[in-house]
Nucleic acid binder design. Sequence first.
DNA 1: ATTGATATGAAAATCATTCCCATCTAGCTT
DNA 2: AAGCTAGATGGGAATGATTTTCATATCAAT
Lengths: 149, 149
Amino acid sequence: MARNRPRTAAPSQEVALIGRLTQQRAIVLEALMAVEGFVGAQALHNRLTGDGTPVGLTTVYRTLTAFAEAGRADVVRESNGERLFRYRPGPDHRHYLICTGCGLSLPVDSEPVETWAEKIARTSGFANVRHTVELAGLCPDCNQRARGR
Amino acid sequence: MARNRPRTAAPSQEVALIGRLTQQRAIVLEALMAVEGFVGAQALHNRLTGDGTPVGLTTVYRTLTAFAEAGRADVVRESNGERLFRYRPGPDHRHYLICTGCGLSLPVDSEPVETWAEKIARTSGFANVRHTVELAGLCPDCNQRARGR
DNA sequence: ATTGATATGAAAATCATTCCCATCTAGCTT
DNA sequence: AAGCTAGATGGGAATGATTTTCATATCAAT
Ligand SMILES: [Zn+2]
Ligand SMILES: [Zn+2]
Ligand SMILES: [Zn+2]
Ligand SMILES: [Zn+2]
């Protein structure tokens, strides 16, 4: 339980993880951290330009990608192929149950999957095995709304 | 290097699942069924045109998509966003360990994940929960080759 | 054979993402 | 503090998979 708002590092600290500290990276990360759920690079870019904090779209892409590779953001794929990013305060690895209606994302206990994936990786002979696990459905609210019409 | 592959239904039978029976659909499905692992729509299209069985790329896309939606093909996403399709003989649901080097795909025992996913779906309150589970790594051969340089 | 709903496919359109490259700048070094 | 340079930026062009358009062809029922 707990801290409803786990102490998050300052953008400037986080930036250090992916290279040189620049204004733009701080801006992008601050924006990413301010978002509740998953966001697309373009949506984040729009938000920034709208806020009068223009940052190049290319830079947004680069920063988010680097951040994700550094393990500080979760990435999922929309059905249309778009990549959505979500800030991850800690270094922990999680999976989410995402509502296809409103984007609400709930972290789920994925321990069973992790051990399963590890076992597969170990016994398969494959190297550098990674896994993608996504759960998607309609949250109660959206489901209600869907039935309403 | 003939390999025994469980050949099940005829293309013409399968086509019925997605609408009207046409020559092109039969061609696309036959090609899909002839492939061992996962294939992209474009790769399949190339193979067909190379075989002197030209079918429109659009039709290949439409057929594969429809077939996947009918639950007769598995779909995974490459890192570049490309969708890869794989024929699924039965209505059974499986997951694969895919080699990012050569495309080799091994079905894995996913029973633990299935029960896990079911439990999440049941306890979450979400409706119509679906899951995506992908394992990817380097197969022994590709790994060897990678170290070779 | 007639006919109307469907399917096809070449070309154009979409659209997220990446590449190019001239121009900055953070973070040293002197 | 001024200079230096590898690393960073960003506007625009390029990429590349997938989709849309729409005129034409084809299935399958009558
Ligand atoms: Zn919802
Ligand atoms: Zn995991
Ligand atoms: Zn391989
Ligand atoms: Zn499954």
